[in-house]
Design a protein around this nucleic acid. Structure first.
Lengths: 190, 190
DNA sequence: TGTAGCATGTAAGCCGTTACATGATTGA
DNA sequence: TCAATCATGTAACGGCTTACATGCTACA
């Protein structure tokens, strides 16, 4: 009986808020798709099974509720956020001490142990990373374009811009590191 | 019986490599301190208990070994990486497909749901975040200064520079976002 | 007719944290 | 002598993933 919800719970509640009051609600499946589209850039893409168990838990707590209307069968379990859920979410958001971001960076971790590898191998790793970065950036650009300049989504747009700027910064840093690497190996060879 | 090790295992092995062959090895306690000093910026700061259980597991697998010499009592269980451990670590590092970094960003997540809060509250959150960022940056600067320009630690130095550049980029973006926020609220009010 | 996508779950297990427990050594 | 730090672990549990299981619907 945990008092507090996990951040992922709040993230899912947030997605349900964006769904709007007029909508018939979201299925777990749809929720997962939206998480994959937006949440994954700043938080995580929860597994399908987690979305379902999380929804069940939130429903138990009365923070989300089955949207009535559809056939009550196994399919089409649609959920909406409740008034209680919205209150809880607001309270969490107003909490003035958000944790510091956590970065898990396998590429940086490997570079840290660079002395175990050949310099060309490290260069290749960084070049590959830049390619992956470009791919991610393109995906996020699609999202950003979809958001446009609509007033309802100014905040999601800001966060998307944040993400794009982050990817750009990362690209610049990595480019610089590659230059440093090739310079180092040249000066060692000559 | 997992075949593969977790990334944290490899990270700890990496720290043991840096300890050098002449050293008497590291205790779990010391290993934790080194992780807190460097690893935490790019990966995680594992809990004390995890360091010990990880060391036990790695010892079982023969990837680390008790350093002989000290009193064999309960205290001073010092570990060194073994030849097998080094081989495994190298193989992992050479693995040409490192995962994409994972960012868990509570601040961005809250900004995403900005419409639930007052603009001043969001501004405060971002300003606080910049302060936390500056603090982290100062800590990393200390590490960077300690590393200096010594050849043995060029790679750790590169990674530290990477971290510093990241914090700077983040600061610039957040500054910009604060400006956008105050501009938005002004144009709505007037 | 069959396959891709929609849709919902259960079970097992890993990674990691917090809380708890214990004791030695160092220095004020 | 007392507190801080060094030092090593166990137990319980939360969050999350992977693997597994099931079945419907649309459409080529």
């Amino acid at each position: 009986m945990r008092q507090d919800l996990s951040t992922t719970s709040y993230a899912l509640l947030g997605l349900l808020v964006f769904d709007g009051a007029e909508s018939p609600g979201l299925t777990g499946y749809e929720l997962k798709q939206r998480a994959d589209r937006t949440l994954r850039f700043y938080w995580v893409a929860p597994a399908m099974s987690q979305v379902y168990s999380e929804l069940a838990r939130l429903a138990d707590l009365g923070l989300v509720a089955r949207a009535l209307g559809g056939a009550a069968g196994r399919r089409d379990r649609r959920y909406r956020i409740t008034a209680d859920g919205l209150t809880r979410l607001r309270r969490w958001q107003a909490d003035s001490a958000p944790e510091f971001p956590i970065l898990k960076h396998p590429v940086a971790l490997r570079l840290l142990m660079g002395h175990l590898a050949a310099p060309e191998q490290l260069t290749k790793m960084l070049v590959d990373y830049r390619a992956a970065l470009a791919e991610r950036r393109a995906e996020l650009t699609t999202v950003r374009t979809l958001l446009g300049e609509r007033a309802e989504v100014v905040y999601p747009a800001m966060v998307a811009d944040w993400g794009l700027a982050y990817y750009d910064a990362e690209d610049a840093i990595v480019t610089d590191l590659v230059a440093r690497l090739t310079q180092d190996s040249r000066s060692t060879q000559s």
